[in-house]
Simulated scan of single mutants.
Amino acid sequence: MTMSMFTCKPTHPFLQIQAGNSRLSSRLRPSKDKVVVVMGATGTGKSKLSVDLATQFNGEVVNADKMQVYEGLDVITNKITAEESCGVPHHLLGIKHPSADFTCTDFSNMASSTVASIIDQKKLPIIAGGSNSYIEFLIDNEAAGFRSKYDCCYLWVDVSMTVLHQIISDRADRMVEKGMVDEARQMFSPNADYSTGIRRAIGVPEFDYYFRLEPHVNEETRAKLLQEAIYEVKINSCKLACRQQDKILRLMHDKGWDIQRLDATDAFLKYGKESNKAWKELVLKPSKAIVSQFLKSSDPKLHNNGTTLKAMVTSTR
């Protein structure tokens, strides 16, 4: 369903009594434009939810993953595929040279411009990604003035860390099947700098030792070194997930961001149709209810507690 409210910006008239007479005059106060932000640790389904919401609310996605902004390494950086995107336009995806620097300021400038362009087209910007430092800088950087221009609805797709670690491990195995090792080999150089550009991505530096020794050891040793490298990818990805979760909690508790948590754990514990059913019930349905209410409301503060959220979701059933 496409939200008809995108045809014009809602306004809210109020009456003002002028001093010295009883004459009434009306004045229009335009509300801010709306932006949805989808957050979460790696592997929790942020991309899937952003596409689901963009399809529902006539939106376009702005990538907020600091490794996916670079060209190449589509498997290692887990870029969304054309099939997965379901025709939804994605911005800031694969736009930078692999060795280029891309700072928080760079992201803020490009994301701000992209959000404005999407709104000009009467569409809903959906910022989605796991690089919370990018998102925080974009929204809280006073120089950019993002908060003065937009009201934001924050959605957090969360998965139990125990379950998520297994998801990450299984995903790494699938990435190997899709060609992760060959992608990493293309980036290998004896003098490689793993502190800049796309070489910082998890799945690149972990294979350095393997590639260095690969030509000089027997098949059994090569196999062992390869498994050790893959295991390191899994461990570092799990560590990243923990940092991402901690950052979201800090934004909530220390900075007061009104972030709506959606527990997707059960959707990942099930398989096939049951998994899809759980995703729709536990993640998509409440997300659609939250965003729908957010788009209708002129109040940037949205559902501050679980009771309110639960009541709203129940009312949609």
Rank of each mutant, 00 (worst) to 15 (best):
F294V: 09
A267E: 08
L53D: 04
D254K: 14
I230Y: 02
V313N: 01
A267G: 02
W279N: 01
S298W: 02
W279E: 05
I235G: 00
S113D: 10
M180H: 06
E219W: 07
T7L: 10
P10R: 15
N109G: 00
A82S: 15
T11M: 14
A143E: 12
Y134H: 04
F102L: 09
R250M: 12
N218E: 08
S112I: 00
Y271L: 14
R317H: 11
K277H: 11
D120M: 12
P89H: 02
D65F: 08
G59S: 11
D182F: 04
V115C: 07
V313P: 01
V181D: 03
T196Q: 07
A184F: 05
M175P: 03
P205D: 05
L240W: 05
A311D: 14
R29W: 14
S113K: 14
S108Y: 04
L249Y: 10
T114S: 08
N109C: 10
L295T: 02
Q166H: 11
T221Y: 05
G179F: 13
G256S: 12
L49T: 07
E177M: 13
L309Y: 00
G129F: 03
Y134V: 06
I259D: 02
G129P: 03
V159S: 00
I135A: 00
A278R: 11
D173E: 13
A289K: 01
R185T: 01
